[in-house]
Design a protein around this nucleic acid. Sequence first.
DNA 1: CTGAAAGCGCTTACAG
DNA 2: CTGAAAGCGCTTACAG
Lengths: 350, 350
Amino acid sequence: MGKKLFKTVHDVARAAGVSVATISRVLNQHPNVSQGTREKVLALIEQSGFRPNAIARRLAQGRSGMLCFLLANRDIIHSFHSRVLKGVEDYCRQHHRQVIFTRFDYGPNDAMPAETLPRMVREYRAIDGVLVAGTNYPNLLQYFSSVELPYVLFGNNLVTGSLALPAKHAVSFDEQAGARDATQFLFELGHRHITFVGNLALHWYLRRQHGYASVMNRYGLPPATIDIRDEADCVELGRRSVPLLLRQFPRTTAILAQDDETAIGIMETLRRLEIRVPQDISLMGYDDISEIRYLRPALSSVRVPKAAIGWQMAETLAGVAPGKRTRALPPLATELVIRDSCMRLPSAPE
Amino acid sequence: MGKKLFKTVHDVARAAGVSVATISRVLNQHPNVSQGTREKVLALIEQSGFRPNAIARRLAQGRSGMLCFLLANRDIIHSFHSRVLKGVEDYCRQHHRQVIFTRFDYGPNDAMPAETLPRMVREYRAIDGVLVAGTNYPNLLQYFSSVELPYVLFGNNLVTGSLALPAKHAVSFDEQAGARDATQFLFELGHRHITFVGNLALHWYLRRQHGYASVMNRYGLPPATIDIRDEADCVELGRRSVPLLLRQFPRTTAILAQDDETAIGIMETLRRLEIRVPQDISLMGYDDISEIRYLRPALSSVRVPKAAIGWQMAETLAGVAPGKRTRALPPLATELVIRDSCMRLPSAPE
DNA sequence: CTGAAAGCGCTTACAG
DNA sequence: CTGAAAGCGCTTACAG
């Protein structure tokens, strides 16, 4: 009848005429309970609206059942990471785990147990492990190792001295392959003057440029790159690149942008100059973020498997016992998404 | 030297030659500890890297220190709610509380303790309270009341029979006032044929239309509304509205869109028809989501104070003892953001 | 200012 | 299949 008659397992046990151990077993679907008592207890729980204290449960079980999705050095969660997070959530829902979302900022040289770390992550045993996304530096990972907090990193945006993707404790996608596919596609459309626009100071964009350059080299074509390093806003970088590109590589017939936002800036500026996409210049983005659905012509892009990245991060973390090493997985594959922003060159054979 | 020499407060107590009560007092900044012992204990904790078990702490203290940001019936977190969440986080960071982000889907007639509810929220005492955002129905709120879980709702997107914003347990912004300001602004630019585009089946858009209509009526102008109810995608709704609008209200010189996404669809379609914004038609959005920074001409819009909403939701929730009523706050004000998409009519006096 | 002890509400070997 | 008891690792009156 009334709700919350029972506050604890003891209340339920008393009413059912059994011990608290039995209540606990029913609660945890332990097999060693007779059909009869199980049903009696479940009925009692049902009608009383009893709910076990989640905190007490975690303390007794020694684990929190919670993973933390930690977004680092990003102001808010944008479309890309929003999709990654969705993949994490889907995994967790299906595997009875919780995700806590939190974000924070830090620098590559910050001491880590500093005040900056969210309490959730700093606290001992508050979470079972952490999924690290956003832009990251090695000092954070070292901290996690030192306190034996299991973690899995989104590998592509780790800032290190090396261009290689991190092999351990990380899930990544194959950035170079995506750029190769895009360049190859443009080549097959007949384009020979393909220009890459990006910020090569950042390794994740440099990888894309390398993929691009490798295909150009394969066909004996000189890579043409507009490299702008002093612009954090990618849309603005795209805008600024256009006059440079028209001056330095006037024969350009196709552009591969480092990402979709850059492509947005490029498309807008080309339009203002009355250079038509794709009739005059073909344009290809990268990432396939959801925002580009607003664009006309619809932007062709390299789709990054965002949800799959999230799912795999969660799956990997769930499989890691503290201290144990995660097994290295191959980077996930991208997929070319062809829309309306690229065109076969009239001169090109079918 | 070595880390994690101490696993529990008992270890620290033994090493310090004091009782665990004292360790606890130091940990909690309790005043009743002598300067000497406090320093000794802190030094010991520091050098040993001891971190108290967060779960045990919560159990003993009887509260979790965690709030849950629950996004309902939204696939992923978009720009708008992302900003709201940021406001929540800022508040929580400053007030030493945690935010857990989670999302789920439900219908207005779903039974609530159902499997759909995220475990976090269903569990007893796992969180201190819940911040409810996204599109919501009364059944969820009734459930929270029945289990005495404190909650605060983002009020504007609650689906009820009434057009009024919810007064209790809610933080809202003044949708009508925002629409009035926008309409008034267009009027002052000389526009007399202003058309509203939206889906009036949804109360939040209907409120905006009411604000619009009230200003039109004030000046004795007939409201002109394109009402499209069978289109969930707002960009597409905007696209579809243009031909209707040109046929039904051909004298239109200004459009107030129900939101920015709708304005995006309108702007794109106008461009395709070679109708210039703002020279031929002025266009005003609503929400001021971050995505519109890509648009040219830059879209004027009604800014919704997203972070302030989040902050106030968290603040309100933090002030609610379980069972206690939250005090009703006045809706937050919007702000007109003037960019380049609206123009003074040539005929209009300065 | 400090400590012994009870308590937070569960779970889990262990013994039967 | 079931129960008594110890334990998870803290905090907090209470007494001194």
